[in-house]
Design a protein around this nucleic acid. Structure first.
Ligand SMILES: [Zn+2]
Ligand SMILES: [Zn+2]
Length: 438
DNA sequence: GGATGCGGGCGGT
DNA sequence: ACCGCCCGCATCC
């Protein structure tokens, strides 16, 4: 059942559908990227939004063929849980991210629970009429239209970055020789149980993670733990960032956290080409020429300085990446935890922000930058910790990064920002903190 | 290796 | 026609 118009996006009534021949062209404001879109929502992202460009979602979504090259369709793979419903030390369940690749997923299901070595179980998504929730992406001019159909009927899996972190850590900790590796593959192919994550990655204390991390990293003779960690961190953010972090690369061990943090403040999106909102017409689905032409016209020429300014800040937010928002948990536990009692999320808004001077000129972050970016449920890093817990520190840093974006956007901020592409540095820094605190 | 996209093909409604 | 989905191919990291 469609809920057309019932969930106003952008404080306006949604009048479009992803399948419409024409999509709205007079978009006054774009939405914050949603990491966990759920239910029947529709969003309009800026085409500058890196996450939207990559069609990212923290749900495990896989591409599916809808025989329509204009609209990218993805369906949810659900979540992987322990077949024994085991709990971590702190009493939380873990929710692993299903591998997106079919082959990899099959392999994954042969592995065993990293916590109790029990079998893993894939909970399929049946949130859309008994079928997986589907997401649709459609690029149109300066916007990326997004639509979700169905409500996930399962817990959230670990995020993409968390899953990547897990892989990196596992790879790093098992610099297995080719021979050993081969036997392992054979084992998995024959269906024998293989503990997915032999190392006790499931820990409830950051302390534990730290010690474990540095211990396995200590195996590398040629690199310091910091360097090793850094490599991991950088590799994790690589796919999201086109920026270089020369300081870190060249002098990781000398990197000062505060210094690094200051860079976080300047982090944002790299691409500032913005397009003016269109005349109140629409994007024509079946007339590629039209929107292409339009795109060209609108791209760069019509921007007045004021427009450029406000638009650039718009882009700054749009450029924030998933990792920035998933916080330090990329390495904190590596696994998505949640309370034992899982409640389906009912409502999710597209957190939009006004692309008006008020949002910017104020120089505040009142444009609800903190508003549950991840929707109305448990934070990805569901983590009980004491104030002195390193994790808290890291998380604080994370928020700081998010709040410290150059809202005021003077020319300097603007330029500086271009140097430090995006907020991924925040993430890298957090990761670095984790490993270097010791 | 695995994430992502693409698109041919098949079967069900 | 629309949808779910399997499968191989290609690209990129
Ligand atoms: Zn288990
Ligand atoms: Zn789902």
């Amino acid at each position: 059942m469609e809920l057309d118009g019932l969930v106003p996006q952008n404080e306006e009534v949604v009048t479009w559908d992803i399948n419409d021949i024409k999509l709205p062209k007079d978009v006054k404001q774009t939405d914050w990227f949603q990491e966990w879109p759920d239910s029947y929502v529709r969003c309009i992202y800026s085409s500058d939004d890196k996450n939207a460009q990559r069609h990212l979602s923290s749900w495990a979504m896989r591409n599916t063929n809808n025989h329509n090259s204009r609209i990218l369709k993805k369906s949810c793979l659900g979540v992987v849980v322990c077949g024994r419903d085991c709990l971590s030390l702190d009493g939380r369940k873990m929710y692993l991210r299903p591998a997106i690749c079919d082959k990899a997923r099959q392999k994954q299901q042969k592995k065993s629970c990293p916590n109790c070595s029990g079998p893993l179980k894939l909970i399929p998504c049946r949130g859309h009429g008994g079928y997986p929730v589907t997401n649709f992406w459609r690029h149109e001019g300066p916007f990326i239209f997004f639509q979700s159909k169905g409500t996930h009927d399962h817990p959230r899996p670990e995020t993409k970055s968390e899953a990547e972190a897990r892989r990196s850590i596992q790879k790093a900790k098992l610099p297995a020789s080719p021979r050993l590796k081969q036997s392992r593959d054979t084992e998995s192919l024959t269906g024998k149980t293989q503990t997915w994550n032999p190392l006790p990655l499931i820990v409830s204390k950051q302390e534990d993670l730290l010690s474990q991390s540095s211990s396995f990293m200590g195996h590398f003779r040629d690199k310091t733990p910091q360097e090793q960690a850094l490599n991991t961190c950088l590799s994790l953010t690589k796919s999201y960032s086109s920026a270089k972090t020369p300081d870190l690369v060249e002098h990781p061990q000398n990197m000062d956290c505060n210094k690094y943090l200051s860079k976080c403040k300047l982090s944002g999106s790299r691409d500032y080409s913005y397009r003016e909102p269109m005349e109140p017409t629409a994007f024509v689905y079946d007339e590629p020429r039209q929107h292409q032409t339009w795109s060209k016209n609108a791209s760069l020429e019509k921007n007045s300085p004021a427009e450029r300014y406000r638009n650039s800040s718009t882009t700054i937010f749009a450029g924030l990446h998933c990792e920035t928002l998933t916080s330090v948990n990329a390495l904190d536990v590596g696994i998505q935890y949640a309370p034992n009692r899982w409640e389906p999320t009912v409502k999710v808004d597209c957190h939009s922000f006004r692309s008006h001077a008020s949002t910017f000129g104020g120089g505040t972050t009142e444009g609800k930058p903190h508003q549950n970016y991840s929707g109305s449920n448990i934070p990805s890093s569901f983590y009980q910790a004491s104030p002195e817990d390193p994790c808290v520190m890291a998380d604080t840093d994370h928020h700081y990064c998010q709040n410290s974006l150059p809202f005021k956007g003077n020319e300097w901020c603007f330029e500086e920002e271009r140097k430090y592409t995006n907020a991924d540095h925040c993430n890298s820094e957090m990761l670095l903190n984790i490993f270097s605190l010791r």
